[in-house]
Amino acid sequence: MSKNPLVLFDGVCNLCNGTVDFILKRDRKKQFRFVTLQSESGELIRKKYHFPEGIDSVIFILEGKVFYESDAALEIARLLPAPWKWATIFKIVPVGLRNAVYRWIARNRYRWFGKKEECRIPTQEERKFFPGPNDLEL
C-alpha cells in the first residue's frame, strides 16, 4: 500500500472536499495522500481491504491499518500539527457515542453542506497528493 497516510473520501461531498482542503493546507510534512471513494483507485483499495458495506465517508489507512468514522477523523488529526492534533483528546469519549455523532453528521452532510455533480478534480499543484491506480502499491 501507500507509504503515506491515505485518506479516502466522498468526492462529491462538499464537507469531505472541505476536509481535504483543510488537511492539505495544514499538512506541513506533505505526508497525506487522497483518493475519492468513487474513483478507480478507490475501487482498487476497497477490494484490497474489503471495506464494510455502506461505508461512504472518510476512511483512513495508516501503515496498512484501516480506520473508520470518528477513529479515522481523530487519527488524521493526530498527524496534523498543534493545535489540530489536540483533537485526539476526544478519544476519551466512548467510541459508540463518537461514532453516533459522526454518523449523524455523515447522514446529513449533503443536506447541510451540499453536493457536487462530479468528483473533485485536483489542481495541477495538488495532483501529486492524489495517486492514480498506477501509483498505488497494492
Results as ranks from 00 to 15, higher is better:
70 S>G: 05
98 R>G: 04
73 A>Y: 08
67 F>Q: 01
66 V>D: 03
45 I>G: 08
56 D>K: 13
27 D>V: 12
11 G>T: 00
48 K>W: 02
51 F>K: 10
110 Y>K: 05
63 E>K: 09
47 K>E: 14
40 E>T: 14
40 E>N: 14
129 F>W: 15
94 P>D: 02
41 S>P: 01
100 A>T: 00
49 Y>M: 09
19 T>C: 13
19 T>P: 02
68 Y>C: 03
80 L>V: 09
118 E>I: 01
51 F>I: 09
107 R>W: 07
36 T>M: 10
85 K>L: 04
57 S>E: 09
133 P>V: 11
116 K>T: 00
25 K>S: 14
103 R>H: 04
114 G>F: 01
16 C>D: 00
47 K>V: 12
74 L>K: 07
4 N>K: 14
9 F>C: 04
135 D>G: 12
105 I>W: 11
110 Y>G: 03
38 Q>M: 06
75 E>Y: 05
109 R>A: 12
24 L>W: 12
80 L>F: 06
112 W>L: 14
74 L>D: 07
27 D>N: 12
40 E>C: 12
83 P>M: 07
23 I>D: 09
35 V>S: 10
105 I>D: 13
74 L>T: 07
60 F>H: 08
91 K>E: 09
113 F>E: 07
119 C>M: 05
20 V>Q: 06
31 Q>N: 14
98 R>N: 09
107 R>Y: 05
76 I>R: 06
96 G>K: 00
104 W>M: 12
70 S>Q: 04
77 A>M: 13
